[in-house]
Design a protein around this nucleic acid. Structure first.
Lengths: 346, 346
DNA sequence: CTGAAAGCGCTTACAG
DNA sequence: CTGAAAGCGCTTACAG
């Protein structure tokens, strides 16, 4: 590999001068030597060594995206927009996948500190009850070592956060179903340790506001997979016969569609369905899913903004709140009639 | 940030000794000083600086995955398994997304050379006719700078390759349809500049073997999206009335399902459908798609094996061939009857 | 306009 | 068992 010294030697110049011109630094250099340097750099196939630059500058121009899963549609789309903005800002990005294993998250933290990344986009991994506490430890560990962090969704003390008001999104979705006349509304939750509690509260509050007491019979827990959505729906259909179902993600909502099909229940004729997030699959199924969409482009912009602030050290950590949006497609319809009145419990 | 010098100074030792023990190098050190160093390293919260290590060792322990799109299910799954193996081998991975833009691929090449990555997993971006030539240039550029490369799918001179025999997979899928009695088999291709020519040849050869001359009327081009699959299917249905359709990816195959639904054509009763790759969506639609699956786990293993060889410089570049597998699910059935005999052209 | 020199934080052959 | 020193490839304040 050719270095600035090779160029300097060949031209009888100093490395300092070569460094200045190849970096386009604002520093007076005669036009002639500039040309000579640029030319021979080209001829020799010179490529600056980013590692050496990083060491002397104390900056790596590198950002990590730490997340629970890359095969989950939400994160895939998240990575797509965030990575795009990161590289647009002149950084490279380390992809750090925990595979929903908190111990791998913790391991990544160490690696990222040692790699001296300039910042990390932190999507906490939490599936088990204790995970949340470990997330906090991990964020603190980064902060202790001076690594700027922006957290997605969850709040971790003195660190910036982009927060999508899933409570509000959830509430709106259920409001919508209520407006359509539904009163028997099932809720398919995710892992209990996850952030879906906010989604549940939005659901519950909407019901209460309309004088309906949330009934545990209408609430089931899945694991975010298609198959679990199907199972949950089957159970709801059997035990609560809802006229509408709200699921906390898309895969499970699609599972609901499948369960309905198996039970010969028409969607949306006999059963309305709403999902959360807006993955491509939501428009590839029949009927196309009505969903609560998280504003990915805005999220990406917020993430980069907050991260830049944190890196520059200009502003104090802060949180940017974003609102999800209800996208009405074809999976919802007015409640058909008050079938099964006798079994209504609320 | 605390350095080995800080530890050395505090203990009245040399940086060399500290370096040796914190790295667990095989070099005699008294048990006492080892303990002292380890203890104070712990107390001081010492973290080795990977950047400095990289510079002095001439190795960055970093691998890049360069790909056309991260929102495409195939690449998402590919990244999931490959990144997992890469980090398992002690490397971190740079995610380099070209967004199907060849000029961004070229830009990444420069960045990766300058970052001195230890290797790159190269999934060529090609959508336009000229892209292929640029892919070759890019691979050569990496090689010229001594960066080990393993290419996926395409062949690029003196560089290792993992090759999935999509010709064979395609041929088998069409054989299967022929076995079911289908003779009017539509083919939905991707971008013409892509690798799907091999898939087309598999299709064409299977037909010929059964005495059927491939008819251009049965061949249409989509852009790999769901919507284009739908459009292509609509056109095929209108102009060629096939009894089976084979699409070169899953999204388009799902689009075929949607088109059939709109036209009140039963799948698989009146139309059989096969897709390529095996994305999660293929099992979330109705009916579940029969597909040609690429063996991701094996691909991942092959990639890492080849990359290791290239990094160690032990073996000459070589290619590992893998075979896709036909996964029979619910979207295919025997050809119902010879409807529309009069219009058969072959 | 150009350069000498120290520094970034580590590794490692060479001595002792 | 321990250390002095050079080297990895840059940057940049300081001189001239």
């Amino acid at each position: 590999m050719v270095t600035i010294y090779d160029i300097a030697r060949k031209l009888g110049l100093s490395a300092a001068t070569v460094s200045r011109v190849v970096n386009g630094v604002d520093h007076p250099v005669s036009e002639r030597t500039r040309r000579r340097i640029l030319d021979t750099a080209g001829e020799m196939g010179y490529r600056p060594n980013t590692i050496a630059k990083s060491l002397s500058r104390g900056r790596t121009q590198t950002i990590a995206i730490l997340l629970p899963s890359i095969t989950n549609d939400f994160y895939t789309q998240f990575v797509d927009v965030v990575e795009n903005k990161i590289s647009g800002a002149g950084y490279s990005t380390f992809l750090c996948n925990t595979h929903r294993d908190i111990s791998r998250e913790t391991a990544w933290i160490g690696t990222l500190i040692e790699r001296r990344v300039d910042g990390v986009v932190f999507c906490p991994t939490r599936v088990k009850p204790g995970d949340n506490a470990q997330n906090l430890n991990n964020v603190r560990e980064l902060s202790r070592h001076g690594v700027p962090v922006v957290a997605i969704g969850s709040h971790f003390g003195a660190v910036s956060q982009v927060y999508v008001d899933t409570y509000e999104g959830s509430r709106e979705a259920v409001e919508y179903l209520l407006t359509l006349g539904h009163r028997r509304i099932g809720f398919i939750d995710g892992l209990s340790a996850g952030t879906s509690r906010r989604r549940f509260r939005g659901y519950a509050d909407a019901l209460k506001k309309h004088g309906i007491t949330p009934d545990p019979l209408f609430q089931v827990h899945g694991d975010l997979s298609f198959e679990s959505g199907r199972q949950c729906a089957l159970r709801l259909l059997r035990e609560a016969s809802p006229s509408a179902v709200f699921a906390v993600n898309n895969n499970m909502a699609v599972g609901v569609l499948e369960a309905a099909r198996e039970q010969k229940i028409q969607v949306p004729g006999q059963l309305s369905v709403i999902g959360f997030d807006d993955s491509p699959v939501s428009q590839m199924v029949y009927p196309r899913l009505t969903v609560v969409r998280q504003p990915l482009e805005e999220i990406g912009k917020a993430v980069l903004g907050l991260l830049s602030e944190a890196i520059e050290g200009k502003n104090a950590p802060r949180v940017i709140r974003l609102k999800p949006q209800l996208i009405r497609r074809d999976s919802c319809a007015p409640e058909p009639e008050r079938r099964g009145q006798a079994r209504i419990r609320f």
